[in-house]
Amino acid sequence: MDRIDKHILRLLQQDARQSTADIADKVGLSASPCARRIKRLEESGIIANYRASLNKGRIGIGMTVFVEVSLNNHQASSIDDFEQAVQDMDEVISCHVVSGAYDYLLEVVSHDLAGYESFTRKLQRLENVKDIHTHLAIRQVKGGSELPIFSPSHSQ
């Protein structure tokens, strides 16, 4: 990845609806070479997908909650069952395996407190869930940020 590829990636993260001609103009290429670069970035998996960023408030999401989850055991089948259950819960918008005092950190959204309580009951019904700790997000300071594009010396 050279500096032009990185510039293209930054521009696409800012607004993926830009035309190839607009991107090409901003990076100093003609449209055809720019389109080839974008296609190569897509085919290599660097560009994973394109999506719209939605306004939570406008679609009725009033709460964001971070939930720490500890499991009773760490057998492969229990982990698989928990992770599949989380995949099937629409309220969970991200789930991370973490180190430390708990096993998973979930980011959960809900219309309101009653909706979150309903979600919590689903989570508590899972066999392998030992403990749940909830942190209500009061205000988002930063979010939906563009990913940094590191130099090749930082890549794996």
Rank of each mutant, 00 (worst) to 15 (best):
M1C: 01
M1V: 00
D2A: 08
D2V: 05
R3N: 15
K6T: 05
H7Y: 00
R10F: 07
L11C: 04
L11T: 00
Q13H: 04
Q13L: 11
Q14E: 13
D15K: 00
Q18V: 03
S19E: 06
T20A: 04
D22C: 06
D22H: 13
I23V: 07
I23P: 03
A24Y: 06
A24S: 08
A24K: 02
K26D: 02
K26S: 09
V27G: 08
S30V: 15
A31M: 04
S32P: 00
S32M: 09
P33Q: 01
P33E: 03
P33S: 02
C34K: 05
A35H: 13
R36W: 01
R37C: 00
E42D: 05
G45H: 05
I46F: 07
I46D: 08
I47Q: 08
Y50W: 08
R51C: 13
A52K: 01
A52M: 10
K56T: 07
G57F: 07
G57C: 02
R58H: 05
R58D: 00
G60F: 06
F66L: 09
N72F: 13
H74C: 05
A76Y: 09
I79Y: 11
D81L: 10
F82K: 12
A85L: 09
Q87W: 06
D88N: 13
D88P: 02
M89S: 01
M89E: 04
D90Q: 10
V92N: 07
S94M: 12
S94K: 14
S94D: 11
C95K: 13
H96W: 11
H96D: 14
H96I: 12
S99A: 08
S99F: 12
Y102H: 14
Y104E: 09
L106Y: 12
V108L: 02
V109P: 00
S110T: 10
S110A: 15
S110N: 05
H111K: 01
D112Q: 06
D112C: 12
D112W: 05
L113Q: 11
A114L: 12
F119Q: 04
R121S: 06
K122G: 08
K122M: 14
Q124P: 01
Q124A: 09
Q124W: 02
R125G: 15
R125Q: 14
N128H: 04
V129N: 08
T134I: 08
T134D: 11
H135C: 07
L136Q: 07
A137F: 07
A137L: 15
I138W: 03
V141K: 06
V141R: 11
K142Y: 14
G143A: 15
G143M: 10
G143I: 13
S145R: 08
S145A: 15
S145V: 03
E146Q: 13
S151H: 02
S151A: 11
S151G: 08
S155W: 12
Q156I: 01
Q156G: 01
